[in-house]
Nucleic acid binder design. Structure first.
Lengths: 191, 191
DNA sequence: TTTTATCCAGACAGGTTTGTCTACAATTTG
DNA sequence: CAAATTGTAGACAAACCTGTCTGGATAAAA
């Protein structure tokens, strides 16, 4: 046995392997034995770090939230202009979706897999989507638009829905081709 | 045994039970033994009518497509004016989503559950979504809009995405409250 | 009426799943 | 250095899964 017990290398290894597999294959089509085999750890180590498959799922979603928002911000913050930033949300989708084999949104997917998700999972989903809408709202508020309260809310809602709709369409059609049309629509909406 | 072998009553019973359970619980969380128990049939009957669980899934999606489009058309065709009809797509979502416990779109859900859906399932999903977009296109084309070819395609794409985005948001947030905002946005888009 | 189709009850089989447990071994901490 | 922490291999157990099969019984068709 030549294992290095660095702070939490095994914990990280499990989480990263499971995150990849849960996202790629779906939660229910991924068994813990596969996670264990691919992470190259012992079953006892798995249960040393995570008390159940479901706890691992929670950790997966928490990690996913951080990772995904990091990717999103990274792309958006390449632009300086508020309008550019808003449009880059859709540029981000083009890049991210194509790079993730059109697997779509982890939070949407888990919602489909858990019809009555227990409260923990549902809270993570809502937290993620709240954060996304807040981010869109922030970008919209940075615009120089004569948007009265109501108008701004409509716009934020619409952009959010276009965003989610785009994720779904790409996931099903396995293409990002139409996103330039969507970006153009959003461009018109904000001008 | 006092069972009536009407044309396909057992086949229908299986399909309806499975359809309900697959939609409510998800495909992978529904085992065939539950379908059998709730349909009140014998296992041999199940396999007499469907050669596998997957074949049942195909039948489920085919039935779902017919049913769902029936519901959609029924609501839309209550309006006469083209504009009214387009907006009633979102009225339909309000009614349907609230009445289906916010369980969302069966086709989206199955896409999440089958990351690499085998071809048959994927074809059914795409067929359903193609039909939906064609329907939206038909409604848009009935409008009296000076829409050049490109403009019309943008509009159809946007409305479709708002539609899908709405389904997702309602599924996650378990509310239809925001749909009136969305309907207003669509109203502005088409005028 | 006979034949065919459809249905029943449920045992069986092999496989998979998640989680528990044991007896160490290796590494880190105090 | 000893104690605590973390990791190993993998057996075990119960439950569940999908699909096969048997020997009828019932209903419909010819």
């Amino acid at each position: 046995m030549k294992t290095q017990h660095s702070a939490s290398s095994t914990h990280t290894k499990i989480l990263e392997t499971a995150s990849r597999l849960f996202y790629e294959q779906g939660y229910h089509l991924t068994g813990i034995n596969q996670v264990i085999a691919e992470a190259g750890i012992a079953k006892a180590s798995f249960y040393y770090h995570f008390s159940s498959k479901e706890d691992l799922c929670i950790a997966y979603l928490e990690k996913r939230h951080q990772d995904w928002f990091g990717w999103l911000r990274e792309e958006v913050e390449r632009s300086e202009e508020p309008q550019e930033r808003l449009l880059s949300l859709f540029t981000f989708l083009e890049l991210w979706l194509a790079n993730s084999d059109f697997r779509g949104c982890a939070f949407l997917n888990i919602t489909a897999e858990f019809p009555s998700p227990e409260n923990r999972i549902r809270l993570l989903v809502l937290n993620h989507k709240d954060a996304l809408q807040a981010y869109i709202a922030q970008l919209v508020d940075s615009l120089d638009i004569p948007a009265s309260g109501n108008n701004s809310a409509y716009l934020i809602n619409a952009i959010y829905l276009l965003f989610e709709g785009t994720i779904c369409k790409c996931q099903m059609y396995r293409t990002t081709e139409f996103i330039k049309n969507t970006r153009e629509t959003v461009s018109q909406l904000i001008s």
